[in-house]
């Protein structure tokens, strides 16, 4: 019989403790980020997929050396470059990033001799097919120019 009343007492106590916690949380500031209605700002070192950096004139800084392509551990980068007639340096003609196998390790960014790569701030990508995430970075770079 004493166990019966003890159970009621313990149950009531734990109920009050629980309600106390709920009430305390209720009057504290809201922590929820109201995502689709407010957009968070990514910190400076946030890693989205990589993007080409533009210089002052808005051109990419890539010299098509292929270091990023060779060093990527999962081979998600494919580049093509060519040397125009009479020019000294190679020009980038094609830069494809298959973001679906990237691990955001940053080796490409580290190994680029001209600092032509950076992490973008894309944080809310989602789509209906995996092919949506194979990016043509050269095209993206040119689109940003406009």
């Amino acid at each position: 019989m004493s166990g019966y009343f003890k159970e009621i007492f313990d149950g009531g106590k734990s109920l009050l403790v629980g309600l106390g916690i709920t009430f305390k949380q209720m009057i504290q500031p809201v922590v929820t980020e109201r995502y689709p209605r407010t957009a968070p700002k990514m910190p400076p070192r946030y890693r989205g997929h990589i993007d080409l950096v533009r210089d002052e004139e808005g051109n990419n800084k890539c010299i098509a050396c292929g270091m990023c392509q060779r060093n990527c551990p999962t081979g998600c980068i494919t580049i093509k470059g060519e040397k125009p007639e009479g020019a000294k340096k190679k020009v980038l003609t094609f830069y494809r990033l298959d973001f679906t196998t990237c691990s955001l390790c940053g080796i490409c960014v580290e190994s680029c001799p001209t600092d032509a790569l950076e992490f973008s701030k894309e944080y809310n990508l989602a789509g209906y097919s995996a092919g949506d995430f194979v990016f043509d970075l050269l095209k993206r770079c040119e689109e940003r120019r406009r």
């Binding site: 689709p36 973001f99 944080y123 989602a126 789509g127 209906y128 949506d132």
Partner: peptide, 21 residues
């Protein structure tokens, strides 16, 4: 698969975006 969310890992916002998609 209906919706794909890329990233390693994707941020929570991306998962929300996927559910909205």
């Amino acid at each position: 698969v209906d919706v794909y969310i890329p990233g390693c890992p994707p941020r929570p916002e991306a998962l929300i975006e996927g559910l909205l998609k």
